[in-house]
Amino acid sequence: MVVTVNPKVCVYCAGCVGLCPVESIELRETRLTILDSCTDCGICVKFCPVEALSGGRPLD
């Protein structure tokens, strides 16, 4: 399942960027972009403190 960010929820904290093993998340000030290189590993989704991310391999 493709990972997507809900910009209405994201508080641009950069935590997901730090966890992504393949540098597939870019944060520009307040705008978060998931790049095509995302492997859907689900790590960022599991981390997001406010659940702004969805999709990816379920890790729960």
Binding site: G15, G18, L19, C20, I43, K46, F47, P49
Partner: peptide
């Protein structure tokens, strides 16, 4: 340099 889930707190 890449953070690991095992050693990373999720905070709000």
């Amino acid at each position: 340099s890449v953070q690991k889930m095992r050693d990373f707190h999720s905070a709000a």
